[in-house]
């Protein structure tokens, strides 16, 4: 099983540039998952116990308003990653994630990952750099969305 997943993990863009040896070391935490169109991957407030690396299909991050229904704040495409709440206490999901269409992903066990980062700080550092990059992009993106740049009619 584990042997089978190693090339899949290595092929994910998130791990580009990570030494093979570390990829192998991580693979033990990974499993392959599938979601049907419309299926919830996790919900706001759920324990954040997995890190998802999207391989196929589109996933939305959303919240829900009783009057307006699901409000999508961001969508993820194949090659992108889902969630970092698993890195920081209280390890609870901030947003809900839903597969907009049929999706495939690698799910990595959060406890397993954290333990390996402690064990091999150079792996922890390499992973933090990658997560940091994603966080930075998402933050810029969210700020721009917040500016509502296309709605300049009434300032």
């Amino acid at each position: 099983m584990i042997q089978d997943l190693e090339p899949v993990v290595r092929a994910h863009p998130f791990f580009d540039g990570l030494p093979d040896e570390l990829v192998k070391f991580l693979t033990g935490c990974a499993r392959n998952v599938r979601f049907d169109a419309g299926q919830m991957i996790f919900r706001q407030g759920d324990p954040a116990d997995e890190f998802f690396l999207l391989r196929a299909g589109r996933v939305s991050l959303e919240t829900h308003d009783p009057a307006r229904g699901p409000l999508v704040v961001h969508t993820l495409e194949p090659g992108e990653v889902l969630g970092w709440s698993w890195l920081f206490p209280p390890y609870r999901c901030y947003w809900s994630a839903r597969a907009v269409e049929r999706a495939r992903a690698l799910a990595m066990d959060a406890r397993c990952l954290r333990r390996k980062f402690e064990e091999r700080p150079e792996l922890g550092y390499a992973m933090m750099l990658r997560v940091g990059r994603v966080l930075s992009d998402r933050l810029h993106s969210a700020r721009l969305q917040m500016l509502d740049v296309f709605h300049d009619g009434d300032k």
């Binding site: 589109r58 699901p70 409000l71 961001h74 969508t75 907009v100 992009d137």
Partner: peptide, 22 residues
């Protein structure tokens, strides 16, 4: 698109430069 309810729109939500990246 910047915002949507997720019922009317199945496409990407986010900013245009992200599309450029891909």
């Amino acid at each position: 698109v910047d915002r949507t309810t997720g019922v009317e729109w199945m496409g990407p939500v986010g900013i245009v430069p992200r599309l450029l990246a891909r």
